[in-house]
Computed example of a mutant assay.
Amino acid sequence: MLNNMRILVVDDDRGIRELASISLEVLGFESVATARDGQDALDQVQSASTPFECFLVDIQMPYVDGFELCAAIRSMPEYRAAPIIMLTAMSDRKYIDRALAAGATDYVTKPFDIMDLKARLNAAALVCEKAREGTALSERVHALADDLMHTTMVDIGDTFDIDDVPGYLNYDTFKDLVKSFGESGAQGAEFTAFQIADIHSIYCRCGSTAYFNFICDVSDAVSDVVATRGYIFSYLGNGVFLVFDPRSGGAQEKADLGEEIERQIWQLDLRFSDGNRIPVKLEQSNAFGFREMPRGIQPGLSSDNVQPLYETGT
C-alpha cells in the first residue's frame, strides 16, 4: 500500500489536526501536512513545490469553509481527480450531498473511527498509486507519440494511452486497479459504460490518425464530467468508455452522466475532414457492480441495458 501519499489535513480545531496527524502516522502515512483553516490550506496548495495527493477537510471553518475549499481545489487542473475526504460532525444528508456536489469524493464523521479512516485512505492511496503509474507510463509512451502516429495504424478495436487527461488510465492499468478493488472486497464500487453509437461509420470516415485524435477529444469531454466527481475511466476500444466510481454514488447520481458528456462533446464542435460535424451519440449502460462485472471488463451494451442520451444532431 502506498504510504508516501502527500496528505493535507484541514481543520480549525487544533485537537482534531493533532489527532488526525497522529492517526495517520500510526496508519503508516509518512507525508502529512496540516492547515488551520481553508485559507491557510489554499495558501499551502498554491505554494507547494510538490502537489498534495489527498485532502482531509473539515466542513465548518471560518473564512473559507470546507465546501468553498473543496470547490477551489477542484478548480485547479492538477487537483481535478485528487481524493478529497470531508471530516464532519454533521451527519445530516444535506451537508454530505452539498460536499459531494462541491467535488468531495468521500466523507468521515467526527469523532472518526481509525479503522474506518484507514479503509477510506487506503482506497484513496490505491487511486493515487495507479494514477502515478498511469502518468509515468503515458509519459514514456508519448515521448515517441509524434513519430509513432506517422508510422503506426490505429485499429477501431485498439485501446490507447492518452496523455494529460485527468482521471484517465490506460486499459492495463485500469484493469489492475479494478482487480485490486475487487480483491479488497469493495463491493459498493460501481461501473458505468458508454459506447459511441455508429462507431464503425465514424472510424471509416475519419481514417486511422484522425480517429485517434477523435477518441482523444472525446476523452477530454469525458474527463471534464467524471474527474471532478472523483471517478476514473478508461477507453476499451470499439468506441467504449468504462467509468469507475470507487465509492458508489448510486445509480441516480450517474443517470445524467451521458447527457453531460454529450453536451461537452457538442461544445468541442468535432468535424470530419470534409467539414461536416461528427454526430456523436452515446449509449449508456445501467450502473453495475463487481458481481455483475462481465468477463474481461467488457460491458454488455445491448438494447436491454443501454439507453439513448442527449441528441447532438449532425
Rank of each mutant, 00 (worst) to 15 (best):
R14Y: 12
R36H: 12
R140F: 10
Y171T: 01
S184F: 01
D106Y: 06
C54W: 00
A125C: 13
F181M: 10
F174H: 03
F290G: 04
D176F: 07
L100T: 04
P83A: 02
R93N: 12
D163M: 08
V32T: 11
D37P: 06
G237R: 03
V141F: 15
I199K: 04
L301Q: 03
A81H: 12
V178F: 01
G28Y: 10
N238P: 02
A119L: 14
I215T: 09
G66F: 11
V32S: 09
V154H: 08
F191S: 09
L144E: 13
D155A: 08
V45S: 03
G296D: 14
F214W: 07
A71T: 06
T152H: 13
T209F: 06
A221M: 00
E133Y: 07
D158N: 10
K94S: 13
Y235K: 05
Y235W: 06
S273G: 06
V154K: 01
L121T: 12
P111H: 03
V154R: 03
F241E: 06
L236P: 08
S285F: 02
L148C: 05
L177N: 06
A48G: 09
D113G: 04
F290Y: 15
A71M: 04
N122M: 14
A186C: 13
C128N: 14
L56C: 11
M1L: 01
T228K: 13
A136P: 00
G289I: 01
E253H: 12
D43S: 06
A104I: 03
D161S: 12
F52V: 04
E133W: 07
R291C: 03
I202L: 09
Q46C: 12
G275R: 00
F194I: 07
S208P: 12
A125G: 15
C128I: 15
L126G: 09
A71D: 03
P246L: 04
V154D: 05
S201T: 10
S75K: 09
R263A: 09
I16L: 04
P77N: 05
S219A: 15
E183N: 02
Q195I: 05
R271P: 02
L87V: 01
D274L: 06
S201M: 08
D161C: 11
I73A: 07
P299K: 04
Y63C: 02
K130C: 10
F160Y: 11
P51Q: 02
L301G: 01
N276A: 10
A20E: 02
T34V: 14
R80Y: 01
N4C: 04
A82P: 08
F160P: 04
M293R: 15
Y79H: 15
M61A: 09
I261K: 09
V240W: 00
S31M: 12
L69A: 12
V280M: 05
I22V: 11
I278S: 02
I162Y: 05
P299H: 06
Q46D: 14
D274H: 07
D256I: 03
L87P: 05
A145H: 14
D106P: 08
T159N: 11
A72C: 05
I215V: 15
V10Q: 05
V165M: 05
G182Y: 12
M115R: 14
